[in-house]
Amino acid sequence: MNLKSGSVDQFESFSQFKDLQEFNAHLEMWLSLHKDKFSKGELAGLKRLVRFAAKIPGVSNAKIGTVLKAIHEEYNGNGISRSTFKRMIAKAANLGIFTVHETERKNGSQASNLYVFNRFPKNDPPKKDKLDHPNKTINLSKTIKNQKSTKRNETFLDHTFTSDHVPQSFISTVKYFFPEARQIEEFWRMAAIAAFKNNCELNTISETAIHSFKQLIRKMKTRAISKPVAYFYGILNKKFEEKYFEELHEIGFPAEDNDFPLNFFYKK
Rank of each mutant, 00 (worst) to 15 (best):
Q147W: 13
K148P: 12
K148E: 15
S149R: 14
T150K: 15
K151R: 13
K151Q: 15
R152L: 15
R152V: 11
R152S: 13
N153T: 11
N153C: 10
N153L: 10
E154S: 08
E154W: 13
E154N: 04
E154V: 07
T155F: 14
T155E: 15
T155H: 14
F156N: 05
D158P: 03
T160P: 06
F161V: 11
T162Q: 06
T162Y: 07
T162G: 11
D164L: 09
D164K: 08
H165K: 13
H165L: 15
V166N: 05
V166I: 10
V166T: 03
P167K: 14
P167N: 09
Q168L: 11
Q168H: 09
S169A: 10
S169H: 02
S169C: 00
S169M: 06
F170G: 03
I171W: 03
S172C: 06
S172Y: 04
S172W: 00
S172L: 08
V174D: 00
V174A: 00
V174C: 02
V174Q: 02
V174G: 03
V174T: 02
K175P: 02
Y176N: 09
F177T: 07
F178S: 04
F178H: 05
F178I: 00
P179G: 04
P179W: 03
E180T: 06
A181S: 15
A181E: 03
R182W: 09
R182H: 11
Q183N: 02
I184M: 07
I184Q: 02
E185L: 12
E186N: 05
E186L: 10
E186W: 05
F187Y: 04
W188I: 09
R189F: 06
R189Q: 06
R189K: 14
M190Q: 06
M190C: 09
A192P: 00
I193V: 15
I193R: 11
I193T: 12
I193P: 00
A194V: 03
A194P: 00
A194T: 03
A195T: 01
A195Y: 06
A195W: 08
F196T: 10
F196K: 15
F196P: 00
F196E: 13
K197F: 07
N198E: 12
N198F: 01
N199A: 12
C200I: 05
C200T: 10
E201S: 07
L202G: 05
T204F: 08
T204V: 10
I205F: 06
I205Y: 01
S206V: 04
S206H: 05
E207N: 08
E207F: 08
E207G: 09
E207K: 08
E207Y: 07
E207P: 01
T208H: 04
T208S: 14
A209V: 01
A209P: 02
H211P: 01
S212T: 05
